[in-house]
Amino acid sequence: MTDDIAKTVRSFIGEHVQDGEPGDDHDIFATGSVSSLFAVQLVMWVERTFGIAVHPTDLDIENFRTVNHVVRFVESRRAAAAPA
């Protein structure tokens, strides 16, 4: 499951980062290689693609700065939403 999520996230980020598909730990916001709107675009894409609700309090760049961070965020939200 994690591999599938990572593959999907990697592909989306790769389409928008100027330098091509980044490594899974590459900080996409550190180098200015994405537009100022990309953070929001990424959040909305995560909501839509993985069917999870992102709340205003989740809008921390730490949740979205690398492929691995996004994967961890998606998994944590899915785990929280899963029936006990």
């Binding site: 537009s35 709107l37 929001v40 894409w45």
Partner: peptide, 14 residues
């Protein structure tokens, strides 16, 4: 309009 288009996945200028 640029924000709306950008959030639809269209390329953005900045």
């Amino acid at each position: 309009r640029s924000i709306i288009a950008g959030l639809m996945g269209l390329p953005t200028a900045a």
